[in-house]
């Protein structure tokens, strides 16, 4: 790697949870225009390899920054917060109950009288709850309360998985 720096600086953004998405997109395209391996199709092997590594790094940065969940985790990591500390997981009894209820609701979709309508309502509800969590995460990160931010990230992680399951179910319902 030649340019060693955090993803925010790579895209000329301030290190903060809230980002200017349009600016991120524009910088991403400008950077890829510069380093994408296609720009080095006639270069020597060494330069092509280097271009590929740079382009991969820029793709990774873009992926992390455009996703609130990945971005939140990355911000904690940047501040030296250990995301893999097992002590910190499973400390959310309040949310555990809610998780079970949400899962049950998803499982009952198939037996509903209007499965698709039921599922769409659930997906909208998941989205809403996830958006609320994203806002809470933003304010926790803003006030420097990293433990709280971590808690919200864990909950968002759960909603991410739930949304994936809902999508799979949606695909199943559509195809049959």
């Amino acid at each position: 790697m030649t340019v060693q720096q955090d993803f925010f600086s790579l895209f000329s953004l301030p290190i903060a949870f809230s980002i200017d998405r349009r600016s991120l997109d524009e910088h991403y395209r400008a950077l890829q225009r510069t380093v994408h391996p296609d720009r080095f199709a006639n270069a020597g092997d060494q330069e092509r390899r280097m271009a590929m590594q740079q382009a991969a790094q820029i793709n990774e940065g873009y992926r992390v920054l455009k996703d609130p969940l990945a971005r939140g985790r990355y911000l904690l990591e940047l501040q030296g917060y250990d995301l893999n500390d097992e002590q910190k997981t499973h400390q959310d009894p309040e949310f555990l109950m809610q998780q079970m209820e949400l899962r049950e609701a998803l499982e009952e979709v198939r037996s509903a009288s209007d499965p698709m309508g039921n599922l769409q309502a659930l997906i909208a509800d998941f989205d809403e709850q996830n958006n609320a969590l994203t806002e809470s995460l933003a304010s926790a990160l803003g006030s420097g309360d990293m433990d709280k931010a971590y808690l919200y990230l864990q909950r968002m992680q759960f909603f991410r998985k739930l949304a994936q399951e809902a999508e799979e179910l949606e695909a199943d319902l559509e195809d049959y």
Binding site: V3, S12, R33, E47, M50, Q54
Partner: peptide, 13 residues
């Protein structure tokens, strides 16, 4: 090669 790439990235940034 690395310096050139670095510089073009900085320019793009």
């Amino acid at each position: 090669v690395a310096r050139r790439m670095d510089s073009s990235i900085r320019k793009a940034m």
